[in-house]
Computed example of a mutant assay.
Amino acid sequence: MSDHVDRKYRTVTAFQRRINPVLRRLPLQTVLETTGRVSGLPRRTPVGGRRVGDSFWLVSEYGERSQYIRNIRADPRVRIRIQGRWHTGTAHPLPDDDPRARLRTLPRMNSMAVRAFGADLLTVRVDLDG
């Protein structure tokens, strides 16, 4: 990873560490809950994306470097809070999907932020249970 991308990653993650605890508490904020790969504890991350049928689609800003992607790789069972309601599901990182094209199908404001702040985009599909 280039020095520029590394600095960008450190800056964005420092900001997110401060803002994410606030966002997680907002009742209508979409939140992805993974299981910590080391701690085994629930880890909640505010995300943007869109539900399409029985799937929820999102794009990770830093791909494999994102902590929630690492947690998904260790245990793909997740919960996601959509419009205040929790759903269980199985997350699938999709490295062959075009994340920039995917962002064009997702909510505009979040997609703009992901494009602006991200560096190694990765599409994720969460297949929701019943």
Rank of each mutant, 00 (worst) to 15 (best):
I72C: 13
Y9T: 10
W57G: 02
A74S: 12
V78A: 01
T123E: 01
L121I: 05
V124M: 01
P95K: 08
V12K: 06
Q29D: 02
I69G: 03
D6Q: 14
W57N: 06
L103K: 03
P93L: 13
R50K: 11
R79P: 01
T90M: 07
R65E: 15
R37A: 13
T11C: 03
M1P: 04
S111F: 02
P76C: 13
R7F: 05
W57L: 12
V47S: 04
Q67T: 09
R65H: 15
R10E: 15
L41Q: 14
P27V: 11
Q29F: 05
V78R: 00
V38F: 13
R44Y: 08
I69F: 07
S60H: 08
G63L: 03
L103S: 07
G118A: 01
V78F: 03
T90F: 01
A91H: 01
T45Y: 10
S60I: 02
L58K: 00
L32Q: 04
G49P: 09
G118E: 00
I19G: 08
P107A: 14
S66Y: 02
R102E: 15
R43P: 02
G48L: 03
L121D: 00
R115F: 04
V5Q: 09
G130R: 15
D75Y: 02
F117G: 05
D129A: 14
G36M: 05
R73S: 08
T34R: 06
Q67K: 09
G130C: 07
R81V: 06
I19H: 11
T35C: 12
A113L: 15
R85C: 06
M112E: 11
A74F: 05
R79S: 14
R24M: 03
G89D: 05
N20F: 15
R85M: 08
E61Y: 05
R43Y: 14
P93Q: 14
M109G: 07
R70K: 15
F15D: 04
I19K: 08
T90N: 00
G118F: 05
D3A: 11
E61F: 06
D54K: 15
L122P: 00
N71H: 09
L103R: 03
R85F: 05
R115Y: 04
T35Y: 05
P99N: 12
G130A: 13
V124F: 00
A14R: 12
R50M: 06
L122M: 08
D54Q: 14
S55G: 03
R77Q: 13
G89W: 00
N20S: 10
G84Y: 07
G84C: 04
G84H: 02
P21W: 12
S39K: 07
L58V: 04
